[in-house]
């Protein structure tokens, strides 16, 4: 049986991809950020997940304004890094797991989540930056990836409550997949940041850390944070953190925190990540 063995929440700031690709990860600016991920990279080397369900959002790369799926799951064989205006990142292609992805897609639809199915797309920094942060610079990514794209750009975006419930349904779907697979789920984006308007540059260390505390907690209070609170407290792009709740919902009621890190700033953004495992 396939099982979800761990969850990771992580920022996916594009500048981190630039730092990896240009070998700047040890300089004064990026050093403290990459040092915070060192524990996680070592842990991933030991865990060797077969598949990562990678929850992220597309930033007007694969999807333009013409079609806006709220929840979309990648069921393809392979995804190429997107050209985001500076040429595609020189990172390996991302290999999908169509058998597991289609199983999850079908299970979710039968479980009342009306998913959009994606067979072909390019994947942008939202998906490739977390892979670089967790796995470094391998010749090929060490696991297969099921991309799960969430609309967090055009309002209304899905509620935290709905994201959590989707995570629960993903866990049920994975558990009913007959093959023996070690599956992780990652929720990415955030933490506090605002990339637009006169209020751009807003960061909120206190709120972000309270959010991390709530993710570690044994109750589900975090799912009920309304959109307006993310927007007021963490900036207009801080709303990406609702995607972490899909990860958290998939881990069940109780979790054990294995690692946590927070750093300000990276470009316009607060960087955070947390590693959790389900606990009986």
């Amino acid at each position: 049986m396939a099982r979800i063995t761990a969850g990771v929440g992580s920022s996916h700031v594009p500048l981190l991809g630039v730092a990896v690709d240009q070998g700047k990860w040890q300089d004064d600016y990026f050093g403290p950020i990459f040092a915070g991920y060192e524990w996680t990279r070592e842990w991933e080397r030991q865990q060797k997940p077969d598949v990562v369900i990678l929850v992220y959002n597309d930033h007007a790369s694969a999807f333009d304004a013409s079609i806006i799926p709220t929840f979309a799951i990648g069921c393809g064989e392979k995804y190429k890094p997107a050209d985001e205006g500076w040429g595609p990142r020189q990172v390996p292609d991302v290999e999908g797991h169509p058998d597991l992805a289609w199983h999850i897609a079908q299970s979710l639809i039968l479980d009342d989540f009306d998913m959009t199915i994606i067979n072909e797309m390019d994947v942008d920094h939202g998906l490739t930056v977390p892979l670089s942060m967790m796995f470094g610079q391998p010749e090929a990514w060490p696991c297969k990836v099921v991309p799960l794209a969430v609309n967090v750009v055009t309002y209304p975006v899905p509620s935290g409550n709905r994201c959590w419930a989707l995570g629960e349904a993903i866990a049920r779907a994975v558990e009913s997949f007959p093959e023996d697979l070690n599956v992780q789920i990652w929720g990415t984006g955030g933490m506090s940041h605002q990339l637009q308007g006169p209020r751009a540059g807003l960061l909120n260390r206190e709120w972000d850390n309270r959010f991390l505390d709530l993710l570690e907690a044994d109750d589900d209070a975090v799912r009920f944070i309304p959109h307006i609170e993310y927007l007021r407290e963490t900036g207009s792009e801080g709303i990406e953190m609702v995607m972490w709740l899909i990860m958290r919902g998939a881990l069940g009621q109780r979790v054990k925190r294995l690692h946590r890190h927070y750093h300000i700033p990276c470009s316009n953004t607060a960087i955070g990540h947390i590693v959790l495992e389900p606990s009986a």
Partner: peptide, 20 residues
């Protein structure tokens, strides 16, 4: 009420359906 709240943030244009 939901949409009205989104307009109550200083220096911010939330990307609502109307703006989209």
């Amino acid at each position: 009420e939901y949409l009205a709240e989104l307009e109550d943030i200083p220096g911010t244009r939330v990307f609502t359906a109307a703006r989209a």
